[in-house]
Amino acid sequence: MFFHIVLERNMQLHPRHFGRDLREKLVSKLMKDVEGTCSGRHGFVVAITGIENVGKGLIRDGTGFVTFPVKYQCVVFRPFKGEILEAVVTMVNKMGFFAEAGPVQIFVSNHLIPDDMEFQSGDMPNYTTSDGSVKIQKDSEVRLKIIGTRVDATEIFCIGTIKDDFLGVISDPATAS
C-alpha cells in the first residue's frame, strides 16, 4: 500500500556547499540519500514530494560539516499481509517463482500455486496448466496475495499465493507480443 507521510532526517552537508544554493544542494542530497531506501517501519521510500521545513544547522566540531534536521513529505510503499498486488515474475524454478512489485520481492512457493499447474523445466522454466492455457514464466504479470512479510532493516521480503479466486496470470508476455 502506498502512503504519503512526513518523515524527518538529519542531513550532513559539506561546507563547500554553503552558498546561495545551499537549500537545493540539501534537497538533492536528501533525494539521493533517501529515495529507494527501505525502512522496516515505513517501507520503501518511493519519492520525495516536498520539503516541509529545514531546521537550524549545527556545525560539527573538527570537520566543519553541518547537520540540518529536514522534514520532508514522501510517498512510501509498504506491503501488508493479505494485500493483493500485481507483480512481474522475475525468476521461475522448481520451488516456485519470484516476482517483483516495484522494489518488493515476492516469492510464491509451488505449494501456493494451484495444484493443476505444473513445473516445466527447460530453456524457459515455467508453470503451466495441464491444458496449456495458462502459463507463468519470466516476465509474466501475475496478481497475487501476500501471506507473509519479513521486514529487515534494508529489505522487505514477502511470500505470496496465487491459490485463490481471481489470482494468477493477468497478462502473458507470449500472448501479448
Partner: peptide, 22 residues
C-alpha cells in the same frame, strides 16, 4: 498459519528461521 515467521528449535534443521508456506 501460512505467513508466520518461525524458528526451528529442534531436529536436523535446528536454528533455521523462515516463513511458513503451507
Amino acid at each position: 498459519e501460512p505467513g508466520n515467521h518461525v524458528k526451528v528449535v529442534s531436529g536436523a534443521t535446528e536454528g533455521t528461521t523462515g516463513m511458513i508456506i503451507t
